[in-house]
Design a protein around this nucleic acid. Structure first.
Lengths: 373, 373
DNA sequence: CGTTTTTCCGTAAACGTTTACGATGACACA
DNA sequence: TGTGTCATCGTAAACGTTTACGGAAAAACG
């Protein structure tokens, strides 16, 4: 008889952590989905210990017995119960990726992560780990979800993205001693942790260099608001390069907006109406570039003709847009692969010889010249 | 002393299911991340049974005791071990969404799902369920991953997307008796299951109706290959509407391509070079439309001027493209919410009164008229 | 005051694994 | 034959929960 929490008088309704819920009925009914180690043992008339050892490749089991166990496992469609394994071993064999929609993301999210996740999952799978993406509600900045994943031990490690300038998630994980790796840098955290980032600073500088070489001197920069760290890095490179060329940085040519099409659309007219009207714009994001180009089109300004447009992170959109947008391209899938490797190297159970931890890599972006600048 | 599987002589290396891996060290070391129910019991000098009952809101526990337990839980930073709970209850309290990159998706994936997932996760969270997205490698069509999730009981139910005409995943889940719901219809599966889909058939017909009303008679249709079901539905609507208007269906005006920018780019010239050159194109996907418009631009054909372009599934891309693309818009977040509701209604533990299962809803797409037709 | 009911809590089993430990033979060797 | 080694296996505990059951004390009732 399931007890219904909701029927409790209001004042004694507990708010434990987390809210407990009705128990799901066991699925599958009679024909259980998969057999347990006990079924195998009974079927073969041996002990469960031996079955487990056989399945786990331990040495102290007869070769013949092992074969029989494996055959029976296949025949009876055995699959180890993950909860049982996790409970006993204190490890879930799965890595969590925190995917957090941005507050400004009204409609659609970043396609950016998919190839990254493909690489990540590919490498993790090679080590027998599952990758599970845990979604948060938009706007709560993951802190709560992260705590929950960590404290209920749903994953053995986490991978963070969209790192911020100061990132409380990183502080939390460091303090908790929970293994993690980040896509992107941050200024948070005294201790070292594996992180992989793109060289937005150099890309910003390279973009400026190229534009200056082509005669531009009034160059606008449009980057995401929030305090996403790559926006700062990009702007640093932009500023330094301008100074190197003896060009004064004009604050009116720098704007922040939501990291989506609407943000770019909204913010671009602002820099175009500056006293010193720019002859070039660098967008720090493909979606913002799309929105920005829309705004330009409405002002009768044609990218590649009347203004030079450069995008920092390339996507298929940049290639298929008309005119095709000059952009800096990351190699996302290898990055996912690599970050998995870095994370694994930081986990005692997977690390090779001592001292092989890999920390703080910064990868270059490749300039793809197209028609917009 | 951990036994290293890799040191086994090759011939007795077992290939159990799944490949077993080294055990991860318990994280956190001394300062354990969270305390167990035993810690609470010891701290309060009561039994673990009482602690559990207090936390779970059972009635047979003194109000005062409950308060003390809850206070201690907060103080000691208690969080229930998920593996323990799952093992005991036979339920994981988490729902899996299978995300499968398409073979053609070389670089980037579908942003389509994010708002859907936001809605899905929002509703599930209200019932205390976690949503975890499980990634597969591109190309293997999920069957293996799905089996693994189901058989190792990593989730209590799954949500499928990208349903195909005949979908072996659905057949498998039905036969296994595992709860699931699908975003999209399929012809598979004799038995009923919760599914939510968009009315691609009507959208296809409406698109034709509108174009015919504006004087077009040679209308091309470009849809994804593979046998994604919505491609068929769209084409059905397209065909029926043409016939209704007494227009013969010209196979040369219909083309399939990979469901991304490259696919649209590759396939669009094919229909444009038909003997009966079309005056309008309906794209079944926004990315394909982007690629297609690129091809058109290279042929000197301007959407909205020289040709009418309509897109079946609207995204921000359609809105911010120049010219803005007329498109049919889904309401993805409510769909996610609704599908979660349908799934929950099919789970005994969450269903309300008997007979409230919700099956097979088909939602309309809203026509957004812009500048491209 | 005796009896019955109610309230509250402790006990212990169970979920499916893994693994430390010990037991049993088989075999080798002196 | 006695002793030691090795291969192989069974036993049982443990991981952290939930929950059926029963018991003790308190409350209610006659």
């Amino acid at each position: 008889m399931a007890y219904n929490v909701n029927l409790l008088p209001a004042k004694i309704v507990p708010k434990p952590w987390p809210e407990r819920q009705p128990v799901l009925a066991k699925v599958g009914g009679e024909k259980s989905l998969a057999s347990s180690i006990h079924d195998l043992a009974r079927h073969l008339n041996i002990s469960i210990g031996t079955v487990s050892r056989a399945l786990n490749g331990r040495a102290d089991v007869n070769a013949d017995t092992r074969q029989r166990v494996l055959a029976a496992a296949k025949q009876l469609n055995y699959a180890p119960n993950q909860s049982g394994r996790s409970l006993r071993q204190g490890a879930t064999h799965s890595i969590a990726f925190m995917l957090q929609p941005h507050p400004g993301d009204q409609q659609y999210g970043e396609p950016f992560f998919i190839p990254f996740l493909i690489g990540l999952q590919g490498r993790l799978a090679e080590s027998g780990l599952d990758l599970t993406v845990v979604m948060g509600a938009p706007g709560d900045y993951q802190q709560e979800r992260l705590r929950r994943v960590v404290e209920t031990r749903r994953a053995d490690a986490v991978v963070l993205a969209w790192t911020r300038r100061e990132d409380e998630r990183i502080d939390y994980l460091l303090e908790a001693g929970f293994p993690f790796a980040t896509l992107g840098r941050s200024r948070s955290g005294g201790k070292a942790y594996p992180s992989l980032d793109l060289d937005f600073e150099k890309a910003g500088a390279d973009a400026v260099d190229r534009l200056v070489a082509r005669g531009h001197r009034r160059i606008a920069a449009i980057r995401p608001s929030l305090n996403l760290n790559f926006g700062y890095l990009f702007l640093d490179g932009y500023r330094k390069a301008l100074k190197r060329h003896g060009i004064e940085v004009d604050p009116a040519l720098i704007a922040d907006g939501f990291i989506n099409e609407a943000g770019g659309y909204q913010v671009t007219p602002r820099v175009m109406l500056a006293k010193n009207r720019p002859t070039a714009i660098i967008f720090n994001n493909d979606a913002m570039a799309l929105g920005g180009c829309k705004a330009l089109a409405e002002m009768g300004i044609r990218p590649g003709h009347d203004i030079a447009v450069t995008v920092i992170v390339d996507t298929p959109l940049c290639r298929y847009f008309s005119p095709a947008l000059t952009a800096f391209r990351p190699s996302l899938e290898p990055m996912g692969w690599r970050l998995a490797e870095m994370l694994l190297a930081s986990l005692p159970a997977f690390a090779g010889p001592e001292g092989t931890r890999i920390l703080r890599e910064v990868w270059p972006l490749e300039l793809i010249v197209r028609d917009s600048d």
